[in-house]
Design a binder for these strands. Structure first.
Lengths: 242, 242
DNA sequence: CGCCTGGTTGACCACTATCAAGGTTAGTGG
DNA sequence: CCACTAACCTTGATAGTGGTCAACCAGGCG
């Protein structure tokens, strides 16, 4: 009951299909919803929508990075997800957005009217399948994040984050040896349930141990990928010693 | 950027519909999928499936409570969700279950072959809509849990949990004045990202302050609902003082 | 009766938050 | 071009929340 299950692939970062009958189409985030909506531009720090706003539009990121987060009344913030090219934002059965969406960089997004999406979902199975796949992927990411927030140490959280960013970069054609972080230390901290000081300290430790290098704060080079992977999955010691 | 958004209802515990076109049917978890699958019984502590198993079946709880969780290699556990009557289990676009599902009580469940569900989703929009609503609700719950795990204090986590259990009980006809917890303190702790000792201590504090009463460990009476609600939403002091 | 699981409480302490200071970078205007 | 400013980043010192370890209790069951 308490041992780990059999060896399995984390669903994170793989594009799922839906069963057999719906599994024939293209992966969800390679397809564009541009035909249903209109492409728009936003500049860094723009807010696409606020938590609690009526869900009138759904978005797909074309270029840039978006940050989705919830707030507590006293200002404590939890980032739910960073969205990259291809990711859908605002897919919910509810009538109000469950999070705020901020642009971390200048953006190109497809904006789709919710009512139009509904119509297209009714008439086009392919669209429906893509929506289903996108929600399912979002759920899978959230469930992995629950494990991270509930049970992983600070070092493991940062390692998991870097690992996810590496895989994201590889999906976009990177070699997995270096990544560019468009978000601040505070954004990372609010994603990982830590403070920005703790994120800094873990990164400094990783640097001191020769696992990463940081030519500048937003650029990270991966010198020893294995240590990062193992720490991310909770296999190594929970604490990286200096 | 850091102030709370406008006043909004947490999506948790409300049954969503999907937009306008798909919003006409019954709420997802009032409907039974019994017609597509077969009703089965399981006894407490049975495992429905393991994380990483191939997704051959999907389940709907008819009676009893199921616990869904992920494990790290060293045995650290994160409970993703407790499932009650009406809840769907195993809806994922992936081919492997993302969590293990254990029976916390004796169960009656509907077991549906994944391939059968796929077929019915193709032929019956109503089934499709219900699946979409169920996944969407699961996502909404997970996103609220991210905020809990990432940013709430131990007291706030326990208060949120009790509040959710109260609302669950009310959905099943309870008066909101008392709840029965089918799970152990360890299960609660693994759900809230705490230890069982901390859960005990918070409950003892709530008891000492006259907010709850515990005639026995699995039965909790709510004496001052307001304090619980406010603490759950992060409005009170983060720490309940003894 | 004795064992085992689960619950509770206490003592202690570690991990991470908090508070504080200083450094670096990017953007802006003179 | 340079000074000024404001974010952002980093590091240090200290403290606190919740974890760890331990002991004991209660109830159920063989």
């Amino acid at each position: 009951m308490r041992q780990a299950g059999p060896d399995f692939q984390p669903a994170m970062n793989r594009v799922p299909d839906w069963g057999q009958t719906f599994g024939q189409s293209q992966p969800a985030n390679m397809d564009s919803f541009a035909a249903i909506g209109t492409v728009m531009r936003r500049v860094s720090k723009d807010t696409l929508f606020w938590e609690g706003d009526p869900v009138d539009h759904v978005y797909q990121v074309v270029r840039g990075v978006v940050c989705l987060y919830k707030l507590l009344p006293d200002g404590r913030r939890q980032v739910a997800r960073f969205c990259h090219a291809g990711d859908m934002i605002g897919l919910t059965a509810d009538h109000r957005y469950p999070y705020t969406a901020d642009a971390l960089t200048d953006l190109a997004v497809v904006r789709i009217r919710r009512t139009d999406l509904d119509l297209r979902m009714e008439s086009d199975r392919n669209v429906l399948q893509k929506v289903l796949a996108a929600i399912s992927q979002e759920l899978s990411l959230a469930q992995n994040q629950l494990l991270l927030l509930g049970r992983k140490s600070a070092s493991e959280r940062v390692a998991s984050f870097l690992q996810a960013m590496i895989e994201q970069a590889q999906r976009e054609g990177g070699d997995g040896r270096s990544i560019t972080l468009p978000m601040t230390r505070v954004d990372i901290a609010d994603f990982l349930g830590l403070t920005h000081e703790t994120v800094c300290r873990v990164l400094s430790t990783l640097k001191a141990e020769g696992i990463i290098a940081t030519p500048d704060p937003h650029r990270i080079e991966i010198l020893v990928p294995n240590v990062l992977e193992e720490t991310a999955e909770g296999e190594g010691p929970q604490r990286l010693c200096a």
